[in-house]
Design a protein around this nucleic acid. Sequence first.
DNA 1: GACACATGGTTGCTTTTTGAAACCATATTG
DNA 2: CAATATGGTTTCAAAAAGCAACCATGTGTC
Lengths: 149, 149
Amino acid sequence: MAKRTSLKNSTCPVARSMELIGDCWTMMIIRDAMLGARRFGEFQKSLGLAKNILAARLKALVEDGILKLEPAADGSAYQDYVLTAKGQAVHPIMVALRQWGEDYAFKPGEPTTIMIDRKNGKQIKKLELHAADGRLLGYGDTTIVPSTA
Amino acid sequence: MAKRTSLKNSTCPVARSMELIGDCWTMMIIRDAMLGARRFGEFQKSLGLAKNILAARLKALVEDGILKLEPAADGSAYQDYVLTAKGQAVHPIMVALRQWGEDYAFKPGEPTTIMIDRKNGKQIKKLELHAADGRLLGYGDTTIVPSTA
DNA sequence: GACACATGGTTGCTTTTTGAAACCATATTG
DNA sequence: CAATATGGTTTCAAAAAGCAACCATGTGTC
């Protein structure tokens, strides 16, 4: 048996997140949804992936409560895939992935895209990690412990 | 041909990031490295994955400059896998994945792990997205445009 | 230095998943 | 009501995941 190992029951939240959204196409679908894509055809055209793969990913995303189906906004009999609150909450992950990619996956001068503030068109700030008291934290300033809740 | 589609040349930084680290095991390896794992055997024991898969992932991570090999810290003739600056920079992504997982992938009361500030043991703040002028931004306050650099 | 055992892989084989293309049912348009 | 767009499902080949067996080198023991 070569079933893809499941991390669904890991006690590590990172593992559970990766289990749900740690797939290239899944993340690209969420990205496109955040940029306004709603219809099966829109996702397919934008991503250029096989329709069976797209159908499987969309189905899983709906089952996991990240997308939901609702009547099409254009009044047709089709349905729209829209992000739930859980799906919208992926936004910081998307930003983190984007900022890392900008910094480490492009050569200087290579064409890319940037995230801007809708209000004024200016580029957003880098994500920062802060302690409970507001101190800026870097790599090495944190560690992981079992929850005692 | 059913070659896994490559997003290596996408102009979207999210796509490039996912291409490099958007794999369950890859992210788990980086997570363990951040928690101090250094040796092949440590990763294998901690993750419980097949050795050939681990070897392939580690090799790719080294090729991509996320991990590097260096002489073992214990003085033996073996080698340690340690995070490069590029690898350490994945930290905010890890935090974002962790926080989303905590909020949306656990039932109340389920055992989990939490990230704390090393200095005082207190739980860290939620990641926040800020505009250039410091305003707090939420989902919907941002958009993507081609870089004009 | 000879031996057993640990470490860090590689190889071979089976099961799953991916992906391309063909097909199909329902909606919409002319 | 025929043609076409939409949103899939089915079929089949290729690639990757996963397990187990094997193997080379390093280390500890006598």
